[in-house]
Nucleic acid binder design. Structure first.
Length: 243
DNA sequence: TGGTTTGTTGCAGC
DNA sequence: AGCTGCAACAAACC
């Protein structure tokens, strides 16, 4: 489910609850859900992998983590972590993290870092990457402070596209390659979004969870790399290891 | 069938 | 004090 584009889809699917009042609240979240009762939804937003419900005096931050899920106007068998009832439908979240944030949102989020936002700032991302030369390429793409919304699929697909080995330190990349990394993360966010909406995301994977390189046909390498130790899929032949 | 995984946090231990 | 590594969460997918 939950890389940035999936959360943007969630936001679009829940747009009709904007302006609605919360008539019913329940759930097994540890935060005090009852304070949400009766509040009006000012806006539904997303920042990276965060889904945000902006209310009158608080913002509800939902993070689906790895296994979280949601249902609109239907329920699963499991107990909801958060269930919101409106006059025009209901919104249920399962297995997710729920937190309250104090407004204003601008004190918590910079939309220039959201890979899908209109305010995305490629120059800012580049500046941040230049300031972390020892960071490995595989870890850099997962850094939410630089690329909010990018996840493990992004990492594998972007590095394959730009033909960079995941263990390359950023400082070893030529300037043009670093720029390419930034622009491909942004590009892949929109490819992911379009493919996900069309239910064809997986069939476009070139590296992620693949067994052979689509360029040269040798078996892809699979290893948990970097500080994050997330699974990397990459081609030793096509992806250059800068050092 | 069971191992893997689109992720993050908090805390123990150093 | 600040770092690192791991458990926890919890469910679809191959």
């Amino acid at each position: 489910m939950p890389e940035g584009p999936s959360i943007l889809i969630l936001r679009e699917e829940t747009e009709r609850f904007a302006g609605q009042r919360i008539l019913r609240v329940e759930g097994n979240s540890k935060v005090d859900l009852q304070r949400l009762q009766g509040q009006r939804v000012k806006a539904l937003r997303s920042w990276g992998k965060h889904f945000l419900i902006e209310l009158e005096d608080v913002v509800v931050r939902i993070h689906l983590l790895l296994f979280g899920s949601y249902r609109i106007d239907e329920r699963k068998d499991a107990a909801p972590r958060l269930s919101l009832g409106f006059a025009n439908g209901e919104l249920n979240f399962y297995g997710c993290s729920v937190q309250f944030l104090q407004p204003p949102l601008s004190e918590h989020y910079d939309w220039r870092c959201d890979t899908l936002a209109d305010d995305w700032d490629a120059e800012l991302a580049l500046t941040k990457l230049q300031a972390m030369p020892a960071t490995l390429a595989c870890d850099a793409i997962l850094d939410q402070q630089v690329f909010a919304g990018a996840g493990n699929i992004f990492k594998n697909e972007v590095l394959f596209r730009i033909r960079v080995h995941p263990l390359s330190p950023l400082g070893a990349l030529p300037a043009g390659k670093l720029k390419e990394l930034v622009s491909e993360v942004r590009q892949y966010a929109f490819d992911f979004l379009a493919w996900k909406k069309a239910f064809v995301l997986k069939q476009h994977w070139q590296a992620h969870r693949q067994s052979r390189c689509p360029r040269c046909a040798i078996p892809l390498s699979k290893a948990k790399l970097g500080r994050t130790q997330r699974q990397s899929y990459y081609c030793e032949q096509c992806q250059r290891r800068y050092a």
